[in-house]
Design a protein around this nucleic acid. Structure first.
Length: 272
DNA sequence: CACGAGACCTGTTCGC
DNA sequence: TGCGAACAGGTCTCGT
């Protein structure tokens, strides 16, 4: 479920506390889990010890990581494929996929629902340990067309897998990459070093437009796992094989690239 | 360095 | 109706 817009939405909701209290100021009393591998590091016992009595001071996002600043250290949460996280009152029945729970002194809980169990929590002293491996934030004002052209200039790869590489740009996943490439009119298997400067600019713009539209719609809710977002109602190509292209009516095609389902318009996004 | 395949996991949906 | 195959928002590791 989570790419940049979904994680951003979750972070904002947890911070604002829409129908629940805000996460900010909550004191963690303990963590409970039925799937210990949700705790990637430090070891589960150290994690339990260090997380106890910590206060959450801020909530944010970096790439696809949900970032909880604590009074000592930082808790990073990665939702991977099927993760979802929300504030729930301790009275509420535990859901089928709510494998890991942070308990707060207030009686509220942060529940990590994760059907496929790929998600991870990481407690670090300095989040730079993790963030150093991430590429730039695509919505950051510093991420200009020139900056994009610059990082692109060293690469010679197929464009779609490149855009999804977190060390190249942070936060792009399968949905928003397919959408961005369609907006830009670029075939997903084109080589990154074969783009014209016009295409580079169109792609930079397409990436930002797709992400902003996603955030504006609170992210995308595709299947039974996520709730909330509406962006799935605005997909141009993602998971729309056979449907008419919103631009030219040509049926959308589906291929596999880098082992990921890939959707594009064979007319708007020419191979060569 | 670039790239494909296999792992890690489980649930839902599709095709026969 | 039943049952296996295909597919799913991500990322890591290994071999070529």
């Amino acid at each position: 479920m989570p790419e940049l817009p979904e994680v951003e939405t979750i972070a904002q909701n947890l911070k604002m506390g829409i129908d629940t209290p805000t996460l900010i100021g909550q004191e963690i009393t303990k963590v409970s889990t039925r799937w210990p591998r949700h705790i990637e590091r430090p070891s589960i016992s150290t994690f339990r010890k260090k997380i106890r009595n910590r206060i959450i001071e801020d909530v944010g996002r970096r790439g696809k990581y949900l970032v909880l600043d604590l009074d000592e250290g930082t808790l990073l949460i990665h939702l991977r494929m099927s993760g979802d996280i929300r504030m729930i009152n301790e009275e509420d029945v535990r859901g089928r996929f709510e494998h890991t729970i942070l308990h707060f002194a207030s009686g509220w809980q942060l529940r990590f629902s994760d059907a496929r169990k790929f998600g991870r929590m990481i407690l670090v002293r300095d989040p730079e340990e993790i963030f150093a491996k991430l590429g730039p934030e695509p919505l950051d004002p510093e991420f200009t067309v020139e900056a994009f052209a610059n990082i692109l200039s060293n690469k010679k790869r197929m464009i779609k897998p490149l855009i999804m590489d977190q060390s190249f740009i942070a936060g792009m996943g399968n949905i928003y990459t397919d959408e961005a490439l369609h907006i830009a009119g670029i075939h997903p298997s084109r080589r990154s070093d074969g783009l014209t400067s016009g295409q580079v600019e169109a792609l930079w713009s397409g990436i930002r437009m797709a992400l902003l539209a996603g955030i504006q719609n609170n992210g995308a809710s595709i299947d039974w796992i996520y709730r909330g977002g509406e962006y799935q109602n605005h997909f141009r190509v993602y998971q729309q094989p056979g449907e008419p292209c919103p631009v030219c009516e040509t049926p959308i095609e589906r291929i596999v690239l880098g082992q990921r389902g890939t959707h594009y318009c064979p007319s708007c996004q020419r191979e060569k």
